[in-house]
Write a protein that binds this DNA or RNA. Structure first.
Length: 659
RNA sequence: GGGGACGUAGUUCAGCUGGUUAGAACGCAUGCCUGUCACGCAUGAGGCCGCGGGUUCGAGUCCCGUCGUCCCCGCCA
């Protein structure tokens, strides 16, 4: 159909803002057709923009031209409407939409663009599978729910900038093309063309840069910054994600906490929510003991307690050498035996060795442990957790008191705590519960690699009082690290850093990083520590997770405009994708080749298995066809590469080793 | 890398113990309709049952493989 031009027309209003007060005004609106209701000589259009929907009436009598055009219009057409706002008559008011008391009497209709029928309806309540939504993300984002989410994210960012600026933090950009770091997650790599065989890494976080900014005297820095990690995805994990990165020199931990708590208060206010302040502080040890998690959900009770009976009877039972108990008030009849058997199975998988339960009633305490412990044993357990008639008491145990066994036991107990909260519906909606988790261990022992790894990251300072045992007893050194937890989700973490080179060097040593290795990887950073590094520390907050919580979404994909799937694929633009052969050659990523005639008549170039036959980097290889053994007269060139794209079933073989 | 769920019309789904021509709703198309707002009514089009193999007289249905999406473990702050 013939399209109209917008010309010099400007919108006078947005669709969603029209009210009774606008009655009588002549307006020009523009937007998408959400719905058309054609009654013959009378056509209604629901016109939508990001502010909402308003009803436009086209009457064949009053404005025959506009009405005729409206007959051609379909869903998602882009139209402009000139007309008059009129109040609706008594019986025709629509109380379901904010603009329902008025409608626009359309006098002129401009069809600015046509639209194919969308693959799914552009409605708030979509049950369309995420795959389709992601493939047509630009349509998905038209839905008002997504509009609200993305706009909430914007307001969150604005709040952050305003708040941080108010506390004299300045925003400084740090590089995306940087150096690979050994600790932590896998890096995304960017090959260098000018220095073949060498790579930039996308930052997992701007950690070193923000510390260097402190050394540079910038005092208070923040940045809303993209970070990259090449690890497997989850509902709350994307390969690229956004952090509010914060660092300050001469830090007082409590001052930083105060600034962040105020910020969180302002962010919650965006969705009209309040959380009690100050946020409770829980040591890592307590969190693991009581909640079985370093990110405890404090919206409900249920606290585990370590259990040791004075007579040692319990610890004599197989699988209860280390034991904890949990009182579940009023739940004595709520968990069936078969239900508990299922729990027990999962607890075992998670590393607990045994589990049992006690039910308390007027009739006394029932448990399969009765034979082993006797009535007084059961009484002692009930007393230890303060259980009363009607309560359920759950025991979990490990078959040794070794650190890693107890740790697994703690994690299993944490799983059960969350499971019980779900099952018994203990989480009251509308509750928001923050906590600071503090006093993390400095190191975590990695039994596979047989070495200590930094629990937070290798630049975290140990507590001063633990410095003496850094080498002698690393497992018991606590770090000046902290996490911020909201409703059982980790939304941020940080630490006071080391600003002294001698201590940094000692920590590297514990981590098994030799002087040479450390120098090779962080030489510049070690140097910087020697030129007057101030005490400093900071935190990084997860924007995606925070906004998802604010928006009430369970996946961070719902608050990211263009997210990736669980296999790190962008379904819309189909990234990652194969690249032109000449791009690979230019980057020095393909070192040795074999050539083969393809069905298409083109030439496919493959990796040699025999590395000795590989041409050296920098010189285009001469290739021959393995079928005919004819030498290709012309050496491989960029022009050829461009001609024979590296797509199709053959794909490309990449070289893993570099000479 | 491992485990689980799912994959049928544009969309959301049904399809029994394998049985002959694969259904529904919404959407879409055409026509009628001046107060609809999830408009209504009538008619109609629309399917590589994800893909490949196997079992069988016969496969949407059973088996094996594979691809994709989601969730979880590992991994990751």
């Amino acid at each position: 159909m013939e399209l109209d031009l917008l010309g010099e027309r400007r919108r006078t209003h947005h669709c969603g803002e029209l009210r009774k007060a606008h009655a009588g005004q002549k307006v020009f609106l523009a937007g998408w057709v959400a719905r058309r209701r054609d009654l013959g000589n009378l056509i209604f259009l629901d016109l939508r923009d990001h502010t909402g929907v308003v009803q436009v009436v086209l009457n064949a009598e009053g404005s025959p031209e506009a009405h005729a055009k409206a007959e051609q219009v379909r869903s998602e057409f882009v139209v402009g409407v000139e007309g008059e706002v009129v109040p609706r008559t008594a019986g025709t008011v629509n109380p379901q939409i904010p603009t329902g008391e008025v409608e626009v009497n359309g006098q002129t209709l401009l069809v600015l663009n046509e639209a194919k029928t969308p693959p799914f309806p552009i409605e708030d309540e979509t049950r369309t599978v995420e795959e389709t939504r992601l493939r047509y993300r630009y349509l998905d984002l038209r839905r008002s729910r997504m509009q609200q989410n993305i706009r909430l994210r914007d307001r969150s960012n604005q709040t952050v900038r305003q708040h941080m600026a108010g506390h004299q933090f300045i925003e400084i950009e740090t590089p995306f093309m940087t150096r690979s770091t050994p600790e932590g997650a896998r890096d995304y790599l960017v090959p260098s063309r000018v220095r073949q065989g060498q790579f930039y890494a996308l930052p997992q976080s701007p950690q070193l840069f923000k510390q260097l900014l402190m050394m540079a005297g910038f005092d208070r820095y923040f940045q809303i910054v993209r970070c990259f990690r090449d690890e497997d995805l989850r509902a709350d994990r994307q390969p690229e994600f956004t952090q509010i990165d914060v660092e300050m020199a001469f830090p007082l931990r409590d001052e930083l906490f105060e600034i962040i708590e105020q910020l969180m208060e302002k962010l919650l206010a965006l969705v009209e929510v309040k959380a009690p302040r100050p946020f409770p502080r829980i040591s890592y040890g307590d969190a693991m003991e009581k909640y079985g998690s370093d990110k405890p959900d404090l919206r409900f009770g249920l606290e585990w307690r370590r259990l040791e009976l004075p007579d040692g009877k319990l610890n004599a039972v197989k699988g209860f050498q280390a034991a904890k108990a949990l009182r579940v008030p009023g739940a004595s009849t709520k968990i069936s035996r078969s239900q508990f058997d299922r729990y027990q199975e999962i607890l075992r998988q998670q590393g607990a060795s045994n589990a049992a339960y006690l039910t308390l009633s007027e009739a006394g305490i029932q448990s399969r442990m009765k034979n082993a412990l006797g009535d007084d044993g059961l009484q002692a357990i009930a007393a230890a957790v303060g259980a009363e008639s009607g309560d359920l008491v759950i025991l979990v145990g490990a078959d040794s008191t070794a650190r890693d066994k107890v740790h697994s036991l703690d994690e299993a107990s944490g799983w059960l705590r969350l499971e019980l909260a779900r099952k018994l519906e203990l989480i009251e909606p509308g509750l928001w519960s923050f906590a600071w988790i503090v006093d993390f261990p400095m190191f975590a022992y990695d039994p596979k690699e047989k070495r200590f790894a930094a629990m937070h990251h290798p630049f975290t300072s140990p507590r001063e009082e633990d410095l003496a045992k850094l080498e002698s007893d690393p497992a018991n050194v606590k770090a000046l690290a902290y996490d911020l937890v909201l409703n059982g989700q980790e939304i941020g973490g940080g630490s006071i850093r080391m600003h002294r080179r001698d201590i940094q060097q000692r920590v590297f040593k514990v981590l098994g990083l030799s002087d040479e290795k450390a120098r090779e990887r962080f030489g510049f950073f070690m140097d910087a520590l020697e030129y007057g590094a101030p005490p400093h520390g900071g935190i990084a907050l997860g924007v995606d997770r925070i906004v998802a919580l604010l928006a009430g979404e369970s996946s961070i994909r719902e608050v990211i405009a263009f997210p990736k799937t669980a296999s790190a694929v962008d379904l819309m633009c189909e990234a990652p994708s194969p690249v032109d052969a000449n791009q690979l050659w230019e980057l020095g990523l393909v070192h040795h080749y074999e050539a083969e005639h393809c069905d298409c008549g083109g030439l496919w170039v493959f990796e040699y298995e025999d590395v000795d036959r590989a041409p050296s980097v920098g010189a285009p290889p001469e290739v021959s066809c393995p079928v005919t053994h004819d030498r290709i007269a012309r050496p491989y060139s960029r022009r050829w590469g461009a001609k024979h794209r590296a797509t199709g079933s053959h794909g490309w073989a990449m070289v893993r080793e570099f000479s």
